[in-house]
């Protein structure tokens, strides 16, 4: 089925220290704005837009990003991904990333908001060469309903696959089906409403960095709880349970800053939303 509601393709490469688009293509209900250069590092920042303002019944979106050697790219969205009710067919988004050796990708989309009776499947496939660096995070909210009920959506599947040199190295699969699961129970959301996930892959990963990140998050672990663990390749994952989007955004932004300072001696740019 090649019938897409929106498609977007962006290929970037490094030219004289600056990351620029080699190819930009979009059609239907997806587009990117012109790149923003937050500092003089040459790192390009693109905002992904969904001009329709939300995903509807049966919508299908396909995004592809490729980074050539040494390209440095930040990708974010302009606002939260909203999935409205889908009475007949779930909405679907698939995003594929190709990262050449030496490239650097930050993919930091806004939170996902599922409306009452919404069904959604999201699949991210990241194909990286050894020596590429990835920072990815996402936030799942309890959704929205007119009467304020939480978890009133129908069902949701979030899939992240990361390949390194064509071998699968991370397989992350979350399914939420609020009608059949006791969301507050032990093992599920455990009294929290928001779930944050972060995946970082980079050759510089070491136990010391994880200790620092643990210390950072452990300092004021009152209104959230977190887990942090090394992957089977050089990298790690973080999960955070909290009650507010802002709490998770703050934690991830602090972690991001610590990683940038540790690895590159730089500070990540503040991603302003319009």
């Amino acid at each position: 089925m090649e019938n897409w509601t929106g498609t977007l393709r962006l290929d970037v490469e490094e030219r004289q220290g600056k990351t620029v688009a080699k190819n930009v293509y979009f059609q239907g209900a997806l587009k990117v704005m012109r790149p923003i250069y937050h500092d003089n590092s040459g790192q390009a920042c693109y905002y992904i837009l969904n001009p329709g303002g939300g995903y509807l019944d049966g919508d299908r979106y396909k995004l592809q990003f490729s980074l050539k050697e040494q390209a440095k790219l930040t990708l974010t969205t302009q606002s939260a991904t909203k999935v409205y009710k889908t009475p007949n067919q779930h909405a679907y988004q698939e995003t594929e990333f190709f990262l050449k050796k030496g490239s650097y990708l930050e993919y930091i989309p806004d939170p996902l908001i599922m409306y009452r009776d919404a069904q959604y499947v999201q699949k991210n496939v990241i194909r990286m060469e050894k020596g590429a660096t990835l920072i990815y995070s996402d936030i799942l909210t309890p959704g929205w309903s007119p009467d304020g009920d939480q978890f009133s959506y129908d069902r949701l599947r979030l899939l992240n696959e990361i390949y390194m040199d064509d071998e699968l190295v991370v397989y992350d699969h979350i399914k939420v089906n609020p009608a059949e699961q006791d969301m507050q129970s032990i093992g599920f959301m455990e009294g929290y409403t928001h779930l944050g996930s972060m995946f970082v892959i980079g050759e510089q990963t070491n136990a010391e960095l994880l200790d620092k990140l643990h210390h950072l998050m452990d300092q004021n672990e009152q209104d959230y709880k977190f887990g942090l663990s090394m992957l089977s390749v050089k990298g790690f994952s973080i999960r955070v349970l909290a009650n507010k989007t802002q709490t998770i955004e703050r934690i991830f932004s602090e972690c991001h800053q610590l990683i940038s300072e540790d690895w590159f001696n730089t500070k990540p740019a503040f991603l302003r939303k319009y």
Binding site: H173, I174, K175, S229
Partner: peptide, 19 residues
Amino acid sequence: EDFGITSPGLELAQMKHER
């Protein structure tokens, strides 16, 4: 396609066990 589904709390507790 159902393979590998996990539940956030369980997994978080498994990560936390390290410390």
